[in-house]
Write a protein that binds this DNA or RNA. Structure first.
Lengths: 230, 230
DNA sequence: TTTAAAATGTATATTTTTTAACATTCTTAA
DNA sequence: TTAAGAATGTTAAAAAATATACATTTTAAA
């Protein structure tokens, strides 16, 4: 499943100096999960931080009818739940394992002790938290202000930046729609229009971006209210 | 103007021990702005942190047509722009002064020096950043998942928690609509329905919540997908 | 190679939301 | 007390998005 937050934010562990990362691993418990297994539930209040070691963690909110909204895929090195340590808030997401997954789990008390001795930890946490709210703010703004076509262009552009190949994105249209919070039909209409503008090409399970610069220009001209000037 | 983020998040300066707050004030430049004056523009890239001393700062995004979306009012003690210090991101918002306003401005270099010597700073920054993204995530989820009526109920409930008087909110419907990202007409329709359910009472420039517990119950039953269990 | 499943493409009816326009109510300052 | 402005209330038409349904294309497995 796709994700805006994950795709743009750096992994927590990657921001740590190797020796600090080692201490984090040392002080935490490695827990293994099988595909689909629950790692945490929305509403849990036991504070602690979780870091993906291998596999992936799918964060979302499961509705009463079983539907899931706003899915986020967290990969190796990425953390979640850290806000429970610094605030008194309950967990916002249901998180399940995607495939065989290993998670470093650390309780709040252990983490706090490490945190007090390793100033590098706070930098890494701050950077991820600040980038996350930055991205969320931009996304919120896009949802409120931009029509679906523009929103789609924007997410494609940001994904092409971070994905392996800037010219091709492998993803289902239904997943993209999910992430943008719109119906597949609406998304398809938007994508069609972008394809007519020659900004993208639609394929089976993939979207090609033959000239990323063209897309970037278009996004800059159509999606930025007071364009992010230099 | 109303704001979800501001209403729920603690002020940065309030999270600092008095002696650290004093050092922050000491190391920054106090700048005065008159009503409506620009404090920063979207796209600015000079890194630094700003803290409101008196008055208020209005953060929003000004569209090409002059319209403003997602307005946020920051009051005394609240900070903005700190993410520019820890990431390489340009500023996301246009910020203007509301009335006579004083802002503590600190450059990135100065702040970083202080940051390295005062571990308490990182805790305060982390807490505000984490709370912010928590609130943003919940808001994003609400926008995607909930109809307007439910969204309105949710914001009213959260505001009644934090406002001075839990039984009365003084706000224009147009402001509320703005914050929720819907038209005034749609919001009015939603509020009417909540009023019919006897959850709220509508007045001129105010919304009364005669029995907050009733509203909370309703929100818990209608707005929480997998209810935030205990 | 055939078949089933997955994914995309498309049309239409329905619902939701917005825009625009205007009436009404409330507040405040002359 | 009255007039002007501010805010809310209401309606109808237009636009946007969704749901439903089904056709087509692509992939991969039997």
């Amino acid at each position: 499943m796709l994700d805006l937050v994950q795709l743009n934010a750096p992994a927590f562990m990657d921001l740590l100096p190797p020796e600090v990362a080692k201490k984090v691993r040392r002080d935490s418990t490695l827990v293994k999960y099988t595909d689909g297994q629950f790692i945490q539930s929305r509403g849990d209040s036991k504070p602690g931080i979780s870091i993906v070691r291998s596999g992936a963690a799918n964060a979302g909110i499961i509705g009463m009818d079983g539907s899931v909204s706003m899915t986020t895929l967290l990969g190796p090195g990425q953390s979640f739940g850290e806000f429970t340590i610094f605030t008194e808030l309950p967990r916002t997401h249901d998180v399940t394992a995607v495939g065989e997954t290993e998670i470093y789990q650390m309780t709040a008390t252990r983490f706090t002790r490490l945190y007090d001795n390793e100033p590098q930890l706070s930098r890494a946490l701050l950077k991820t938290a600040l980038m996350r709210s930055h991205i969320l703010l931009e996304m919120l703004d896009a949802i409120r202000r931009l029509p679906i076509r523009e929103r789609a262009a924007r997410i494609l552009q940001s994904m092409s930046h971070t994905a392996g190949n800037p010219n091709k994105l492998e993803c289902r249209q239904s997943e993209l729609a999910y992430t943008l919070g719109v119906s597949r039909i609406s998304l398809n209409r938007g994508l069609k229009q972008l394809a007519e503008l020659k900004l993208i090409e639609l394929g089976y399970g993939e979207i090609r971006i033959p000239r990323p610069a063209l897309l970037s220009d278009w996004v800059a001209n159509h999606c930025n209210p007071a364009p992010l000037a230099s």
